[in-house]
Design a protein around this nucleic acid. Structure first.
Lengths: 341, 341
DNA sequence: ATTTTATGCGCAATCGATTGCATATTAAAA
DNA sequence: TTTTAATATGCAATCGATTGCGCATAAAAT
């Protein structure tokens, strides 16, 4: 059963024609007779022929592979984006190659190089947290290889990207809290370097301002936004002379940390302190109380990124103007913030 | 900046040597002088040479890519396995290509074909739920391409695999419940076709038996193991004349469904009914009460699968005896089952 | 001084599919 | 009937890296 893989040459030999003809027949070239096509197809079948993408890729310089770089594949958000990309890619017979940067700059640089060497036709990526030098990505762009960044991106970069309207998400969340009667709303924010956190902070501030609530610096806690950070931050808030009556966290993870602290101390959610997260991670659905959060449209984000890729591919050699897509977040209101019916 | 990609020929021309020499110099061939090697390396640098993996792959028949097929990439368990595989693969300069079967047999078959055409060096896969014909996988094996199945596998298949000792996981979980004083323990089980569910059921039965607790058919509920199914199943159990005092679910998802029903009906967990899930999904940590569950060693599973791949690759043409690895599950005891201190 | 052995590198084929440019045959047009 | 236009296929180069074989030249051994 260890028979060698058949090539178009094997088919050609069997039918006493040339490989060129076989190649053309297989792709339904108009200048090949129906009879030959039928014969080739049949021979391919019996020989169990399977095209060698590698050879085709070498010849025409397109691998039909999209490279994806995510900080980590095992986070719900990123794996959903991946799924979104794959959906679109597969529909066009493209495959995806996934790499993880582990939120590490050096690994990210190495990964870009690896994907370039693998001759992927394009790269879809989300920055590692530590990345603040973008040369490796610019190199991709300058080679004429489609590059689409998502979620974590950089406004100034002349590159296509798909991001969430983080500002609006935050604005909606905070406005919702205000509508629920909250007066002192705290905010957990992340590294300032990453624009998504800056934008969420901006949405927070403006929502307060638009509702005549003064901005209080002491209610904004910066951290790494993990669960443990949420615990720390919440404790810090509770130790204030005048603690908040609501917390809007830029991450579901730290929101969950906050929730734990509150439950331990028997502080009622949302009656005493209302809670809103960001991300709509699956676990927010299972928490008690269920966490109000902002959905990041992860799958749509993947879809959009893939679509931009195909647009750019379709544009061929023509210069492609980087396309910026902004998705509208959805506020998912659940019990953790629902004070009124 | 749109300069063409440099090849070894460009380097050769620049140094007035042949491509053969360049190729050998780049891979540190012993028959090339140090002087030449140094010169080649330097030229490669200045020309910004990047090796074309596609060409190399075509020539030596190895793409340095491992294909992965998972039902869905956005489930914590699978994405962790992927991460585990990638860790090991990357260390050996391999990349992974991820595909999703969406738990659909036809898509799975097509995906196997696609990976074969992409000339991956091996395939790591977990069955789609509906898969009961394995010809497409046997075809992979018969081509001499390393195939490693994980989690969802099939004992009878002469193929390497990495699975969890589901029997032991279930046995531990149920024994734990018994130690907590539970007498009537119910069980949620999945499709019989999938061995993991059969094994968990077996562990459940034997743990009961070994502790002198009679097996009660009416306490075993079969379903699709999603959250909704857990809700249904729990309701069914509560309508029994004599409801259980514990539930061991073969899935965290349906366990969460059960938890919801119990909380709605003000049935105390674990005092009235103790709950144990399976999978150690992230949300089990955030639930209230936190869910006792069985960890599936997902990342280790990925690591192990990748290691088997490299073993088989290393074995070369020598016939490789399929290697079966069984990982030991860990019972994570949390509040949902902790009746005693 | 002659034979061996090492060393360093070039030649040319190869991997499999693709494609521009002929060429040969047949059908249609003049 | 001769010219023109389709139609159907073959030839050979190409994509870029790899590698077995061979041929020099130099160093070592006899």
């Amino acid at each position: 059963m260890k028979r060698e893989r058949a090539t178009i040459h094997d088919i050609a030999k069997k039918l006493d024609i040339t490989a060129s003809t076989v190649s053309r027949a297989l792709k339904d070239h108009p200048r090949i007779s129906e009879a030959t096509k039928k014969a080739v197809l049949k021979a391919a079948q019996t020989l169990n022929y399977q095209p060698n993408h590698i050879a085709a890729a070498l010849r025409n310089g397109r691998s039909k592979i999209i490279g994806i770089i995510v900080p980590t594949a095992d986070r719900s958000f990123f794996s959903s984006v991946v799924r979104g990309i794959e959906e679109i890619a597969n529909a066009s017979k493209y495959n995806v190659m996934i790499c993880q940067s582990y939120d590490n700059y050096d690994k990210e640089v190495a990964t870009v190089e690896a994907l370039l060497n693998a001759r992927v036709d394009g790269i879809v990526a989300s920055f590692a947290k530590g990345t603040d030098n973008f040369d490796h990505f610019l190199k991709v762009r300058d080679k004429g290889i489609p590059l689409i960044l998502f979620d974590r991106s950089n406004e100034d970069l002349e590159v296509s990207n798909v991001i969430l309207d983080d500002y609006q998400g935050a604005y909606k969340a905070v406005t919702h809290l205000i509508n629920q009667g909250c007066k002192r709303i705290a905010h957990f924010t992340g590294i300032r370097k990453i624009s998504i956190y800056r934008e969420r902070l901006r949405g927070y501030r403006e929502a307060l301002q638009d509702n005549g609530i003064p901005f209080d610096e002491s209610l904004v806690i910066g951290s790494n936004m993990q669960l443990e950070d949420g615990i720390e931050s919440m404790k810090k808030l509770l130790s204030l002379a005048s603690p908040p009556d609501a917390v809007f966290s830029s991450s579901d993870y730290s929101a969950m940390g906050a929730m734990q602290v509150l439950k331990e101390r028997r502080i009622r959610i949302p009656e005493d302190i209302a809670l809103v997260g960001f991300g709509n991670e699956p676990f927010t659905w299972f928490s008690e109380p269920q966490l109000t959060t902002v959905d990041q449209r992860s799958k749509e984000m993947g879809n959009a990124a893939a679509e931009i890729f195909f647009e750019q591919i379709g544009a061929g050699k023509k210069p492609f103007v980087p396309k910026k897509t902004v998705l509208k977040p959805e506020l998912i209101i659940r019990k953790s913030s629902l004070k009124k019916g």
